[in-house]
């Protein structure tokens, strides 16, 4: 049984993860809740971690695997109101996850669990030549700009600048973040990095980002992008395979 202070914040986490995955197996134990899965086309990986400290209350015995249909979970979470607390309660007898919104009253959905097991995928230990910390909304806006021009985007680090650019058949777009840019928090690089990525996936991954959030991007040349940010007490990490010429 786990209680989160803001159901509305957690809704953004579920919304974002549901953009990429159809189902997920949550692992709940003493440390909190984690989950990791690849999308059906094996292009993207999502890793979710909600530390025990993010919960207002958290009770567990042993370790539980909770298989969830994300489309159904998302629909339920969309019913969260701004002051609702969220209680997630595993009913092992009925094989259901109770999703409870608590405010002036108490609304309870019982979500049927899926018979899936947690994926064995580990996050690969990749060494990245460039790490960029950036205001999340600035990154999201640059991706939306690029989306007007093409279906892919190039993320580049060169000369202490982070660049988002794309070329369409007729039109081009580029956004530059250098040390003078207030959106850039930090940039560390050993040489250049340049990789191209599918924009649809990237836009799905940044869906939950709002003003004030900070994203951390790990980049290389023709290497998967690692993207990290925190949302509603959850740490989200994404890996996205590049497009290569």
């Amino acid at each position: 049984r786990a209680t989160l202070e803001s159901a509305k914040e957690f809704k953004k986490v579920v919304d974002t993860v549901a953009q990429i995955l159809d189902e997920i197996c949550l692992i709940a134990n003493e440390d909190g809740i984690t989950a990791r899965a690849m999308d059906p086309s094996h292009v993207a990986l999502v890793s979710l971690e909600i530390p025990r400290l993010s919960f207002e209350d958290y009770e567990i015995e042993g370790e539980k695997e909770i298989g969830i249909d994300l489309e159904a979970f998302k629909k339920i979470m969309n019913r969260a109101k701004s002051k609702d607390k969220l209680i997630l309660e595993l009913d092992e007898e009925k094989n259901k996850l109770n999703v409870i919104f608590e405010n002036s009253g108490r609304r309870k959905f019982s979500l049927a669990l899926l018979d899936i097991s947690a994926s064995e995928i580990k996050m690969p230990e990749i060494e990245y030549p460039a790490v960029v910390m950036l205001k999340g909304d600035a990154f999201k806006e640059a991706l939306k700009d690029a989306d007007l021009i093409s279906d892919y985007v190039i993320l580049k680090v060169e000369d202490n600048k982070f660049i988002v650019e794309t070329k369409g058949e007729l039109n081009d777009f580029s956004a530059e973040f250098d040390e003078d840019s207030s959106a850039l928090i930090s940039i560390e690089s050993q040489g250049h990095a340049k990789s191209a990525f599918n924009l649809e996936y990237l836009l799905d991954m940044v869906k939950g980002i709002k003003a004030g959030d900070i994203v951390k991007l790990y980049l290389g040349t023709d290497m998967p992008l690692k993207l990290e940010y925190s949302l509603g007490g959850a740490n989200l990490t994404f890996l996205l395979a590049p497009r290569i010429e």
């Binding site: 690849m38 086309s41 094996h42 292009v43 993207a44 990986l45 995928i121 690969p124 230990e125 990749i126 892919y152 191209a196 599918n198 290497m223 998967p224 890996l239 395979a241 590049p242 497009r243 290569i244 010429e245």
Partner: peptide, 14 residues
Amino acid sequence: KNKQIKLIDFFNNY
């Protein structure tokens, strides 16, 4: 034109 790579290709390499 560029081609979408799958993550598995990288998992095998790393």
